[in-house]
């Protein structure tokens, strides 16, 4: 049986492996790891059902791995290998799978999530959209909150507030607070630390049940981004002093064994996926020139 700890560790080692592959020049393009933020999707996973729609963003590997037990499919997508979730076309930040979609344009998914919530209204299912603190700069976020509240839609907005957007600290980008902004639209808002999976579930279980009946909710998690924004572009100092669940939990009984298991699992996924042939895409018969 996969425990929450297994899942947290899987995501942690998956992300570390990506940075490692980048450093070795074995990955092309860019990728945004969720190092330090793993608890959020893992805590939410059992609160979301198969009929719910999840909208993820550029920092979405944890969102995906918490919903689907498919590290090989995700890595193949990122590496453009056979068995990739989207044939290697979308890559790290553009993934589509039943009940799951991610895209790399900030704020774009929120109106779409409102549309999905409108579709799902009355069914008991909800639309859940992950956004970062920086994405609150986009006007589409506010138009969406207004619509969701106005129309009584089952929309759950999960904010991973890591205090930074690329290199811009929140203080340079946000006036006021997320909570006050939600209040202005009459949208329920809860702020939570992201350090204890079961505490998060205890708080959110009744709130998410209310979302399903048409009361939109914004949950704001305080998280730490422990890695660079994408790869090797961190301008911060003092990152190693930030709180890390991985360090905090390392004394828990069974941690060392679970950690070794996850590391080995990711290691074998990396070896296996790297050995696969390049992905093929139906659109390959291309027409160029005229």
């Amino acid at each position: 049986m996969t425990t929450d700890l297994d899942r947290l560790l899987l995501i942690r080692h998956f992300e570390r492996a990506l940075l490692d592959l980048f450093a070795k020049g074995e990955l092309n393009g860019t990728t945004h790891t969720c190092l330090g933020q793993e608890i959020v999707p893992v805590a939410l996973a059992p609160l979301l059902g198969p009929d719910d729609h999840v909208f993820s963003n550029h920092r979405g590997h944890g969102h995906y791995l918490a919903r689907f037990d498919d590290p090989a499919g995700l890595l193949a997508e990122i590496m453009g290998r056979e068995g990739a979730v989207c044939d290697g076309v979308g890559g790290s930040q553009h993934i589509l799978r039943e009940g799951y979609l991610s895209t790399g344009v900030q704020g774009e998914s929120l109106p779409v999530a409102v549309g999905a919530a409108l579709h799902l209204r009355g069914s008991g299912a909800l639309a859940c959209a992950y956004i970062g603190d920086g994405t609150w700069g986009e006007g589409a976020v506010y138009e969406s909150l207004n619509l969701a509240a106005l129309w009584g839609l089952p929309l759950l907005v999960v904010v991973e507030h890591n205090g930074i957007a690329q290199t811009t600290p929140t203080e340079l980008a946000m006036s006021g607070t997320i909570g006050a902004r939600c209040a202005a639209f009459g949208v329920a808002h809860t702020a939570l630390p992201a350090d204890d999976v079961s505490a998060i579930r205890t708080v959110l279980t009744p709130l998410v049940a209310a979302v399903r009946t048409g009361s939109p909710l914004v949950v704001e998690f305080a998280v730490n981004r422990l890695g660079p924004h994408s790869k090797g572009d961190d301008t911060r100092s003092g990152v190693s002093e930030l709180r890390d669940w991985y360090r905090d939990m390392s004394d828990v009984t069974g941690f060392a064994e679970a950690d070794a298991r996850a590391r080995d699992l990711v290691g074998s996924v990396v070896r296996e996926v790297k050995a696969r042939p390049l992905s093929t895409w139906g659109r390959q018969a291309v027409r160029r020139g005229a």
């Binding site: 092309n28 393009g29 453009g80 044939d87 290697g88 076309v89 979308g90 895409w281």
Partner: peptide
């Protein structure tokens, strides 16, 4: 370029 979105994987 082709009449297509631009895929991520370099070979595509």
């Amino acid at each position: 370029s082709a009449d297509s979105i631009i895929p991520t994987a370099s070979h595509l």
